[in-house]
Structure formats: C-alpha cells, structure tokens
Design a protein around this nucleic acid. Structure first.
Lengths: 188, 188
DNA sequence: ATTAGGCTGTACCGAATAGTACAAGTTGTA
DNA sequence: TACAACTTGTACTATTCGGTACAGCCTAAT
C-alpha cells in the first residue's frame, strides 16, 4: 500500500480543482478519488462527513483566501484608488487561474444550495460590504456606495458566466478592466 | 391507467420548473416524474433520448421566448430608449417569475457544459449582439456598444447570482433598475 | 527496535441511478 | 362499434451512487 505524503490542505486544493471542473453534483466519489488522486480511505479519513465535508472545506479555503487577499485589504486601505486597482488585479488573477469559476456562485444552484446558503450569503455580503465601505470613504454617499459595490461584484460574476459560455478568457479580462475604470472614475 | 391530456409543450414547461428548482444534475428521473407529475413512460415517449433530450427541449423553449420577447424587439426597435426600457421590463418580469434562475447560465457548469455549449454560447452572443446593435444605433460607437451590451448582460446574470445568495428579490430589481438607467444615460 | 497512531487500498453495503420493455389504457376516426 | 395510433403505469435491468469497515502500511517519537 503506497503512501503519499498528504496534508489535508493539499487534499482540499485537489478537491477544489475537481469541484471547479465538474461541479459539486457531478463529482462522484469515484471521480473524485480518480481526479484528485486520493483514495476513498484517505478522503473519509480527512473528511468524515463525506462529500458535504469536502465541499465545506473547499469553500472555507476559498473564503479565507478572499478574506486575506481581497476583503481585508479593501477595509484597511489608505488610498481608495490603489485599493480598487489591487482588488481588480487580485480577483482577475484569481479567476483566470481558476478556470473562470466561482465556487460560491456555483453553490447557489442545485440540491446543495440550502446546505451552503449561509456561507454563500456571507461571502457575497462581505465582498459587497468591504467594497462599499471603500467607495464611501472614497467620496460616495452610503447608498451609492452600496449600489455600485453590488453592481461591481455582479458584473464580475456575470462576466465569469459569459466568459465560460464564450470559452474566451479575454472576455473576462475586458470586464475586469472596465470594472476597474468605472470604479476609479467614481472616486473623489 | 389514467390519462392526462398532456402536450409536449406542457411537459417542457413542467420540466423547466424542475430543472430551475433543482438544477440539471440533481434532477433524477424519479424526482422529475414526481415533481413534474409525468410518468416515466410519458417522459421517454416525448423525450426518447432521456434527460439530455428533456434539457434540450427546455433550453429551446427558453431560447424561443427570449428570441421573440427580447432579442427581436431589440433588433427591430425604432426608438432606442423605449427598447431599452422594454427589455429591462421583460427580463425583470421573466426572472422574477422564474425564481431568479437563468437555465443557460446554469449550463455553464457541471458535466453538462460540453453537451449544451453551442446553445449556451448562441444565447448569450445573440443577447449581447442585439443589445449592441441597438446601442450603436442609439449613438455609441461599435466598440463601446459591444462593451456596454456585454457588461449589461453580465450585471444581470451576476445580479441573479447575488439575489439567490441573498434570497432577496429586491436585490435583483435594484440591479435591473440601475441597468436601465445606465443604458438610457448612454443613449443619444 | 519497538510501538502507537496517522494514513490508505480494497471489498463491500443498501439505495438510487438512467434507461428499456411492454401490456393496458385512452382517444379520434370511421 | 371497431380499429389504429397515441399515451402511460409498472416492472425490470445493469450500473453507479455515497458511505462503511477494516486490515495493513508507513512514519515519528521513544
């Protein structure tokens, strides 16, 4: 019986790839162990509650990444324009390297939607709120800040959908460029 | 053996509801026959190729609706502003009455994505193109028209995602209002 | 060197899966 | 009334599903 030096976080990373590529429902245990290269024994060792546990771990990891790399910088920024540029850059790089899939968005459909409703809501609410706070500090009144933040997140998410439909990455890059430009033009 | 007066189009309508509520992958045949109230025999009578056939029929129906109620009016409009308002109204009413789910967007994820890639691409491309042509006739240069059309469709799709995440319909209505206002402000 | 405990492959379970076959029912037409 | 065509419930298939059990391996610490 071979042994691969495997940490839980490596497993989570591999699982994220599978879920991103095939979606949650279409990722059967057999597919998962094959594509992730992790045996069923290990899977249930790391994730005792099965598929749900695996998905939750993946979502948690994504959530942590966004918190550290996107939301927190937005909240603690001193220069609003720089923060906007940093956000669009980070988000752009992230989704390009993640096959233009947002796992949280994927969880708003299908059987799993109730299971992860809380986490999903928090993810989007945190993003919108952090961006809204920044825009408010950048000069917009509170309502405008909230509306523009929500529209920015929405156009990014919709951009991912259309990009996948077109199977053309430049579509997403174009959307991101214009989001940045639009947000910057609203500041000060 | 009871007989329900059932037309194929009624079946398609019922299937659309099931797919919208549960997604394609999570809609098993047992679930479908139960929720749609159509027996397995009838299902395979109307859709000989099974689930794929059912989904294709549903997508076709949605596609036809958008072609007639959204894309064609956009293309043949005489007044650009009126056309924008008509589009946002139609789209808004459509998705509100369809649980804020766009089936074409749902088909950009999961196992089924390759199966319906052609139809999905056509749907989004037609929408963006029809809106771009209108904006162009409304005074925008071609590139701006395309970019703004794509962003408008994207923000609508992203709005649907966030609305489902928030489980709050007014979010979507707000997005739609602002899309309309933004498009109108670009005309003439 | 031994041992304890974290990993992992394999065989297995009952349940559910998509799809098939077909007899029996229902309808419109004559 | 009789008949053909269309519709549909039911029973069935082989396969796959998520999950469990557990023996055996491997590594780190003593």
């Amino acid at each position: 019986m071979p042994r691969t030096l495997l940490e839980r976080s490596d497993a989570v990373h591999a699982l994220a790839g599978v879920f991103r590529r095939r979606g949650y429902e279409s990722s059967s245990l057999s597919v998962i162990q094959q594509e992730a290269g992790i045996g069923r024994g290990s899977l249930y060792h790391f994730f005792p509650d099965g598929k749900t546990d695996m998905a939750r771990a993946v979502l948690d990891q994504v959530s942590d990444w966004f918190e550290d790399e996107v939301f927190a910088p937005l909240r603690s920024a001193t220069d609003a324009a720089d923060a906007v540029s940093a956000m669009t850059k980070a988000v752009s790089d992230y989704f390009v390297s993640r096959e233009n899939v947002c796992l949280f968005a994927a969880m708003t459909l299908g059987e799993e939607k109730e299971t992860f409703a809380g986490e999903v809501k928090t993810y989007f609410a945190d993003w919108v709120e952090a961006l809204a706070v920044l825009l408010h500090r950048g000069g917009l009144d509170l309502e405008d800040a909230h509306e523009n933040a929500l529209d920015a997140v929405a156009v990014i998410q919709g951009g991912l959908i259309i990009t996948r439909a077109y199977a053309d990455e430049t579509t997403f890059l174009g959307v991101m460029e214009r989001v940045e430009r639009r947000l910057l033009s609203q500041l000060s």
